[in-house]
Structures are given as C-alpha cells and as structure tokens.
C-alpha cells in the first residue's frame, strides 16, 4: 500500500510536469494551429540560462529565474515570427513546413546552447522546498506534492484566464476565425504574441520543476517536448482539459512501469502508448471529434 501511494504520487508529479508542457503546446496550438518542435528547448533555455546567470553574478536564484524566463520568452517570440509565421504560405510544403523549420530551430537552440553551456550535465537547485512527509505509511517528498499543487494552480489560473478574461475570449475567437476577429477590432498580432509568451512561461516552469529531479544539459528539451506531445495526443490536440488527463495518465503509467516492469521496458512506455493511441484510438478520437464538430459550424460549407 505504501509503495503504491509512493508510486502514484511520483507518477502524478511526473505527469503534472508533462501536463504542463502539454498545456504550453496546447495554448499555442489553439491560437496558431502550430506545434513547435522547439518548445521543449525554450524550457531548457530557462534552466540552462538560470545556471549560467548563477555562474556570472551573485544574484538570488529567484532573480536569475525571472531573467532567464524573460530571455527564453523573447526567443520564443522570435521563433514564432521567423520560423513559423514566415512559413505559412507555401505551396506543397505549406502543411508541414513549420515542422521542418521548428525542427531546425530546435537544432539551432540545442547546439548553440551547448557552445556556451558546455557538454557536462549539471544539477539544478530545488525550486520548491525539499523534505518529506508521511502519508498512510508512505514517505513522500514534499516537492512532489508541491509540484502537483503548483501545476494544478497554474492550470486553474490559465483555465480561468482563458475562460473569463477578455484576453482569453479574444484568443479563442482568434482561433475560431482570425479575419472576423480582426474585423471585430481584435489586434490579432499582439494577441498571438502574448499567447506565445504565455506558452514560453509555462514550459519554462515545467523545466524548472523537472530539472531538480534530473539534470540540465543542452539536450533535455527533447524529452520535455516528447512527453508533452504524448500528453496532448492522448488528450486530443487542442483540448486543454484532456491534455491534463493525458499528462497524468502518462506520468502514472511511467511510474508504474518504472516500479513494476523490467527496467529495459520502461523507456518504451510513452512511445508504445502514443502509437497504440494514435493507431487504434482512431475510432474514439473520431467520435470525440465529431461530437465537437457538431457544436461548430459545418466545415464543408453550406452555401450552394
């Protein structure tokens, strides 16, 4: 029982981080219809940048974190401007041009970071208080519980912002119909930029929560991204609440596998989950999608 609780909490904490990355991807996708393959690296920049700043000047950790976040956010906006918006209108490659260009961005960010960060993996200071508590006989690091709490708080906050504020409304309107939103007086470019900034902040926090448990090097962005992508695919692209569930499912699955399966099989879990869901979950996805489509205007066009 105790181990089960430990495993579950560990899984939930992991899953919360994946869900946060997934949230970051979803928020941007909802407004721009693009999933940046460089999003994980933006998160990496936050933690790598914090460490670098820590090496150069005796500021408190919190200040370094904020500075690194700001820097990463600027990079995210530049990436959107250069590698995504510029691609949109091609013939033949239009559909997936941004996959290739964001992959390129990922390569650039990872390897240029390696140049100033170095090749050694480094530890990251704990951002949340360490220590343990006891729960039903299980020993649980408080950090894990706090991670779940922080992520839950962020998601709630963002859900509130998206649902109740004018910003959230116009961002959703933008996703529904950009030209008409503009015709209603919405400054579409600014809104898009703000969404990219929020996305960067979210993935930055995810990196901050994940790094203390593992390590930091120039390449951790890839695993952050992968887990986030699996989370949103499980939940359905664009579906924020389901992305949460997807992340938690993945986290718990990983934790359970880690505890009860042969260690060589553990790394396969996310990919097998992803493939199984993508390929065999098609019917379920289809039903979900048509249920959502029924609430929207018909995509084929009624005018005759």
């Amino acid at each position: 029982m105790a181990t089960l609780i430990e495993v579950l909490v560990s899984g939930l904490a992991l899953g919360a981080i994946y869900a946060l990355v997934g949230l970051s991807l979803n928020v941007v996708y909802i407004t721009t219809r693009v999933v940046s393959f460089a999003q994980g690296d933006i998160g990496m920049l936050v933690v790598a940048g914090t460490l670098w700043l820590g090496d150069h000047g005796g500021r408190p950790l919190a200040v370094d974190l904020v500075l690194a976040l700001a820097g990463a956010a600027v990079v995210a906006v530049l990436v959107d401007l250069i590698a995504v918006r510029a691609i949109r209108g091609g013939v033949g490659v239009a559909a997936y041009g941004w996959i290739v260009s964001t992959l390129g961005v990922s390569i650039v960010i990872q390897n240029s970071t390696a140049m100033w960060f170095g090749t050694e993996s480094r530890g990251f200071p704990h951002v949340l208080p360490t220590g343990t508590i006891e729960l039903f006989g299980a020993v649980i690091p408080t950090e894990r519980l706090l991670t779940v709490a922080v992520v839950a708080a962020l998601i709630l906050l963002l859900a509130l912002a998206v649902a109740k504020t004018q910003w959230g409304r116009v961002a959703r309107a933008l996703a529904d119909n950009q030209p008409i939103a503009a015709a209603c007086g919405v400054p579409t470019n600014w809104i898009r930029t703000s969404v990219v900034l929020v996305g960067a902040a979210l993935v930055g926090v995810a990196a901050m929560l994940s790094a203390p448990q593992t390590f930091v090097n120039a390449y951790i962005g890839t695993s952050l991204l992968l887990n986030g992508m699996v989370a949103i695919v499980l939940g359905g692209l664009g579906n924020v609440r389901a992305g949460l569930v997807g992340g938690l499912v993945l986290g718990v699955a990983n934790a359970i596998a880690g505890r009860y399966l042969d260690s060589t099989l553990v790394p396969y879990v996310p990919f097998v989950l992803l493939l199984v869901w993508l390929i065999f979950g098609a019917d379920v996805r289809g039903k979900l999608a048509s249920a959502r489509a029924a609430r929207r205007r018909d995509p084929v066009g009624v005018t005759a």
């Binding site: 309107a173 529904d176 939103a181 205007r297």
Partner: peptide, 21 residues
Amino acid sequence: PERRQIFPSLTVEENLLVGAN
C-alpha cells in the same frame, strides 16, 4: 459577415464581448 461567422466555440455573451473589444 456573410454566413454569420460567429465564433462557434464561444458563448453568446462571449461573442458579444469580443464584439465590444
């Protein structure tokens, strides 16, 4: 707009508030 083009995923009130942007 032609064919109305309201924002389908937004509620009536939200549509109006966007219009009032």
